[in-house]
Amino acid sequence: MLKIKNLHASVEDKSILKGINLEIKPGEVHAIMGPNGSGKSTLASVIAGKEDYEVTDGDIFFEGQDINELAAEERAHKGIFLSFQYPVEIPGVSVTNFMKTAINETRKAKGLEDMPAKDMLKLIREKAELLEIDRKFLSRSLNEGFSGGEKKRNEIFQMAMLEPKLAILDETDSGLDIDALRIVANGVNKLKSKDNAVLVITHYQRLLDYIVPDFVHVLYKGRIVKSGTKELAHELEEKGYDWIKEEVNA
């Protein structure tokens, strides 16, 4: 589904990703861990097509197609979704209105008519229930005055609405208390199927108890320095990152 080959990317002439290789197949859950500043969010943004980041070398294939030249919205239309580490506020635009626009724009790109209001309402109700989101919440301005946990839950609600093929969750667990974490993880697991894939970016093992990864990668200084199974996550939890750093720097 996603194939990244020797990816190098820089921002403002500062090289951040320095040769990433990663392959994610349908039905898989991958986790990327690593210390702060190692390039996890950058990788997520590059996959999603943020223009500030320049790909200086390497390729990204999505479902066999080189997507490097595609605009961010075109990648979204293909089924790439990013749950942001820091979701932005859009004052005056309600969650519902935002979702309606996103869904209809995606449909338009596929040559489909707008979703009938009745179906839209049904979908919203269903997904809001899945994530235990209050109806009142949906009429609030997007992310404006949301608590950290509300923002993250809202990201996953959007994911549920858009049903992407590849969902990248960037530190979705930060800011969530244990109940919210369970709700969000449960939502992600319910949406999982053999046809879609999830890339979980996290600092902590905690989330991985709920969303169980098939593979765990450690990103450090712009490179994947270690890959393994979920045992690796436990090891990191126990020993921290220092031993990895030592290994790399040795």
Binding site: V88, V93, Q158
Partner: peptide, 18 residues
Amino acid sequence: QIFYCNQRGISTEKAIAL
């Protein structure tokens, strides 16, 4: 803000309107 909208499948023009 624009990138956030783009990521949800909303074009830049439409994002500005929104």
